[in-house]
Design a protein around this nucleic acid. Structure first.
Length: 592
RNA sequence: GACCCCGUAGCUCAGCUGGAUAGAGCAUCUGCCUUCUAAGCAGAGGGUCGGGGGUUCGAGUCCCUCCGGGGUCGCCA
């Protein structure tokens, strides 16, 4: 199905023959042999580096080896010519019908075109968002949410058994802080504090959260419990119930936001539940038995030494044995577990549930945390567990180049809701993937809704809509023709002769490779660039028809050519639609 | 001070895990545009891939080093 993969297999077979015949030494490692599209179309359809890669181990010079190979490659099915170029590349020209086969696949498989089996059903766990249940989600969360969600769909498309997971940090100090802020809003709801009082507490840092979003939570608490907590002064008494109340409320908020973005998780794991089930103790026992914990004193942090720093003995994990810079604390000075201890337990839990392949999507501000978690995972699985941490850089929200002001609801950030309300879910999802996760992203309301080539969402959607439009016209022009996908598959594709038509076919043939590469590299943004390029090629073909009427898709006098071209148009539409499906974006039928 | 990310055309960014003459869009310049779908099209100029070393048939890509920008740095999550 994937031309490059089948060709690679055939080249390997040829090399195998040569080894068997004694023309090449036995047991050569063929993993580095590649069959890929040449960068320059003029070089042919497929290039292989076999001669250069194998020259040294085979004890021959590249040109000599290439000369040996090229004669064999010429005889491969679908190869019409092969030649040696540059330092030893072998370029192959394929029968144009091979590209037509790609189109046939597209029409037969629809959205499933590009699905792969590389994952072989391996279980993989993708953890993303995992926002603290302390308030509404902001733009940064939106990026991580879309990234994780789309990476998951991509991995599933490539044959992995994906579990999408959210880790709820409902056990640490942050949720206590929210509980305190909620109490202030609650007292305000009861008329015992004024807005000024609350703002004053915020300024004096007595409470840490000041957004308006806590007001309805406080109202709800009042509606349920009346003034039950007004006279209770002991924090130990009122914090737990208020905390649980807020966390439940906030998780509802979070889930609503995620739903609005079209993001879905299979599993929500609770830190608090892990602690209460004793899993933190279990995990730490495990490390202790392995001799990987000890009580020690850390060096003071370099750079900006805190004023109140003093050396204290703490329970530490020997992270340095697994590539981290320093050993990491498991217990705070007051004897309670650190966040890291909980996270170790959480990752052990994932491993115990059968995942050896893990992906975590975090904000870039957590970069300093990567090594220690990878170290912990290595310790827990004796090196068998793989954890890839994808750090998403900042999103800057702009309107016409001007920074967008923060919403009052949140307090101090642009919320995910603001984004969705402003430009819609589909635009948010697509734009978040137009940069690799490593790179900062500018999200400009004006730019992303503009109808121009500069705006990738528009340009790709426009390509899809144009294709649909051609079909609306085709129905009128050829009322009796069978324009279904199976019907179009019967068209005579040999009538697609224009180099740009062949170019589009080639691009369609490249889709499965692109999907697989993006999935294995954990880089969904590659699909955005592919879709943009495919749309650009399609638009260019369309525009050629403006100048040369005989190149228009629909030729009233020639139904056979029209049907072949309609098949091509349909193929482009299907591949764009299947790319958008991975992105969770609805293809547009018609531009308005 | 350490660690992580980034540095590619005037600007914003790709570059398919080491391949051939480094690519798009915007901006600039030159033509075209009463159209099956319109929000444009075709072409041109523009590069020491931050600097310097190294690895090899071959480096924007890998290693070392320096420069510049961002992030993080015990008892936050």
């Amino acid at each position: 199905m994937n031309i490059f993969a089948t060709l690679k297999a055939r080249i390997d077979a040829v090399l195998g023959d040569l080894m068997a015949e004694g023309a090449l030494p036995q047991g050569l490692d063929l993993t580095r042999v590649a069959a890929e599209p040449p960068r320059e179309a003029a070089h042919g359809d497929v290039a292989t580096n076999a001669a250069m890669v194998l020259a040294k181990p085979a004890g021959k010079n590249p040109k000599e080896l290439a000369a040996l190979l090229v004669e064999r490659l010429k005889t491969l099915p679908d190869v019409v010519d092969a030649s040696i170029a540059g330092p030893g590349f072998i370029n192959m020209k394929l029968d144009d019908k091979i590209w037509c086969n790609a189109l046939r696949d597209v029409l037969a498989l629809g959205a499933a075109y590009g699905d792969g089996k590389t994952g072989q059903g391996e279980a993989i766990n993708v953890e993303y968002v995992s926002a603290n249940p302390t308030g509404p989600m902001h733009v940064g969360h939106a990026r991580g949410a879309v990234f994780g969600d789309v990476l998951s769909r991509l991995l599933a498309k490539t044959g992995f058994a994906v579990t999408k997971e959210y880790y709820i940090n409902d056990a640490g100090g942050q949720v206590d802080h929210v509980a305190r802020a909620l109490r202030a809003r609650y007292l305000q709801a009861l008329g015992k504090l004024s807005e000024e009082d609350v703002q004053g507490m915020l300024q004096r840092k007595e409470i840490m959260y000041g957004g308006d979003y806590l007001i309805p939570v406080a109202e709800a608490l009042k509606a349920r419990d009346g003034d039950k907590w007004a006279g209770v002064d002991d924090e130990n008494v009122w914090i737990p119930p208020l905390r649980d109340f807020t966390v439940a409320f906030m998780m509802k908020l979070v889930k609503d936001d995620l739903l609005a973005l079209g993001v879905h998780h299979d599993v929500f794991s609770s830190e608090k539940a892990l602690v209460e089930a004793g899993k933190v103790d279990d995990a730490l026992d495990f490390l202790e038995k392995a001799g990987l914990t000890y009580t020690g004193v850390l060096e003071p942090p370099k750079g900006k030494t805190p004023d109140d720093w003093e050396p204290r003995p703490q329970l530490l994990f020997k992270a340095t044995q697994f590539g981290d810079e320093v050993d990491r604390p498991l217990k705070k000075s007051n004897g309670t577990w650190t966040y890291f201890a909980g996270d170790i337990a959480y990752h052990k839990d994932k491993v115990d549930r059968g995942f050896n392949n893990l992906v975590n999507v975090w904000g870039a501000d957590h970069g300093g945390y990567v090594k220690r978690v990878q170290a912990a995972l290595a310790a827990l699985t004796a090196g068998k567990g793989q954890l890839d941490v994808k750090l998403c850089q900042m999103v800057k929200v702009l309107n016409n180049g001007e920074p967008v002001k923060m919403s009052k609801r949140s307090g101090n950030f642009v919320t995910m809701r603001d984004l969705i309300d402003e430009v819609g879910k589909d635009v948010v999802r697509f734009i978040m993937l137009t940069r690799k996760n490593d790179a900062p992203l500018d999200f400009d309301y004006a730019r992303v809704t503009e109808k121009s080539r500069e705006n990738p969402v528009f340009y790709v959607q426009y390509g899809h809509a144009r294709g649909r439009s051609v079909f609306r016209h085709a129905k009128d022009m050829f009322p009796t023709a069978d324009l279904t996908d199976p019907g179009l598959a019967k068209a005579d594709f040999a009538l697609l002769k224009d180099p740009d038509e062949i170019g589009v076919l080639r691009a369609l043939a490249n889709w499965p490779r692109t999907v697989e590469g993006a999935a294995l590299a954990h880089e969904p943004h590659r699909l955005a660039f592919y879709m943009y390029d495919l749309a650009a090629q399609f638009h260019a073909l369309w525009n050629k028809g403006n100048d040369a009427a005989e190149l228009r898709f629909l030729q009233a006098e020639d139904q056979n050519v029209s049907l072949a071209r309609l098949a091509l148009v349909r193929g482009v539409g299907l591949v764009i639609a299947s790319g958008l499906a991975v992105f969770g974006v609805e293809p547009v039928e018609e531009m308005r």
